[in-house]
Design a protein around this nucleic acid. Structure first.
Lengths: 196, 196, 196, 196
DNA sequence: CATGAATGAGCGTTCATTCAT
DNA sequence: CATGAATGAACGCTCATTCAT
């Protein structure tokens, strides 16, 4: 219930340490020893909470992506218009990534690589996020805002890819500009593309 | 004359073998021994043509990305309308990726990861490809087809990201549908978004 | 207490194993795998105690040479006459080498080679040992036993070289005679040479 | 006869190149490719003149040491007094080493290491040089100059060791002083030690 | 004789994972 | 639960040597 499990604190510290370490130089370059050091635990302790290094990465995806989806969903549900929802989603996405560049780096730079070997770990994929996007587009169609002939299952991925690459470019440029200023140009582009 | 230089043949075989091996399970999982076996050469032979495993990956990017840019450029230059050019670019991109799924896999799944450590290898990045896209958009603006207020330097990345994610999704789905059928929906979406 | 610290035990076993392995066929021929096997530890364990193979060799020099110097010094300090000290030094040198032929082999056969690349590792050199010898000669000069015009900084090296080569010859001959019987002829020769 | 064999030129160039290369960073660090490059021949060519890398090193010893012995012998034979002969030998030894520091480096720094594995190559050892020294000492004994009770077979090695270490110290010091100035102190020391 | 591309055995080192304490 | 010393499989890379030309 409301009882905070002691172990959860340590588990969280390990995940945070892992995000930092993975973001630094990539998943493969990061060592479990570095994660342990950063988390302030012994190397062996990590294995009390995670089955393996892969499991640690996957857990980050599962839990963080899911949290993103939930947070975004709860913030969007109050909006009526699908257009506003889309705009807000882009803003939230870029804002979150800008707020946590380490996590962003792991998502952007490890995601593809990982998605590959994660074929076996379906929960770690982005399906939920794609569905969130797809749902909004379909809502817009029902509201008569967006074209009915949109190929939603393809379009939602393109939409994600556009945001994704925007973040990646920002990361690779050294985070030397305000990422959120990209929100409006992106939203404008897609909403125009979606309209009747 | 028409005689194939032996060295080039071997170098090419190694690159092809590397593309296959890297695509299989990712760059880090692939071993030089596997690349050598696949190429039908001894392990040491690879080092006569490439300085290191990293150099091999980087060479693939440099040479193949550049070739893509050149081929696409020469196929597009004959078209007048920027709209047609964009449509053709999407078609070519998806077609090439579908034709060489191994190469596509390396590009999609290793690109991000690699772009990371490739900060030091500027030639290996996608700047040239981004510029190709950006150039077409600007052409469209001058032709009066596209809005003047497009934030081109951001939009061109979004455009690439959309194509990129489309390919990634196809790869992760097991290449079980025709990738080129995504061309029109994608093009429609962006061209509408670009229009006045 | 009297309890042997586990770590030190293992570190010592690795050093001993390395001495044996290096003595066998030389530093370069010896493999870390062989050192590990001889020490009864896993290959990776060596790297918990030594940074590299080079570091292992250097550590042997640093620690063993220093121990020799200390032991010899403490045994000589009680003697009054510089002549007796020199005689005793030669005896101790040959005795120690005869007692630990493996260590001797490393010293003799790897020392030069190593001294070469050890230019950067000043602690590993023989300066301390040369100074021990030089100090005794100077003592003899002050005691009026040895000539004042001895070029000590050169002579001390010649003295060492003579002992050194005596040991090397014994090793190369297969250790098939009593090395300590060389002590008196050597001492006689040099002490005569040093006298007024 | 007087006809210079073409091949000998190349053989000599390879040996010289090897001396340079081995002196640089030691026998093991030197690569056959570097020797070939330095000699201006192809890698494979070396194997037309030498069976292996070891054989190349051994040949250097055999031929150069033998040449030293011969040259020294012919220069000493004219002298009457064993004392003068010894003085001259020391001078020649130091002079030659100073004239060809590369060769000296190979002799000093690789000799021990090599003498080890050269147990199987008896011709490569220093026996001839030791005998040259021993012969002079015995001559001195017959001339009544040196003590009859000298343990010549041991003393000759000590004598060599003293010269040897003198050269090594000079090399390790960076050859930053005149080596031949060590000749007289060394000779004085030993001749006094040898005298009745 | 000469070449130099090709070979492939061999080795130092790393690091995810385990387990006795 | 937590530790961290120990493990040992795995891999990138080197280089002496060969041999077809």
């Amino acid at each position: 219930m409301a009882r905070v499990r002691k172990g959860d604190d340590k588990r969280d510290r390990i995940m945070s340490a892992a995000i930092t370490a993975f973001a630094q130089n990539g998943y493969h370059q990061a060592t479990m020893a570095a994660v342990a050091r950063e988390a302030g635990v012994a190397a062996g302790t990590i294995y009390l909470y995670f089955k393996s290094k892969d499991d640690l990465l996957i857990s980050i995806f599962e839990e963080k992506v899911q949290r993103f989806i939930n947070e975004f969903h709860s913030q969007l549900v109050q909006e009526e218009s699908a257009e506003i929802k889309l705009r807000k989603l882009v803003e939230l996405h870029l804002l979150e990534m800008q707020k946590r560049p380490d996590l962003a780096a792991v998502f952007q730079l490890e995601l593809r690589q990982s998605r590959h070997f994660m074929s076996a770990y379906p929960k770690a994929d982005l399906k939920g996020y794609f569905d969130l996007i797809g749902g909004i587009i379909e809502e817009g169609q029902q509201q008569g805002l967006f074209r009915k002939d949109l190929y939603v299952s393809a379009i939602k991925r393109a939409f994600f890819g556009a945001m994704d690459e925007t973040v990646t470019s920002w990361l690779l440029a050294g985070k030397n500009y305000d990422l959120t200023q990209m929100a409006d140009p992106l939203s404008d582009l897609f909403i125009r593309g979606f309209r009747e």
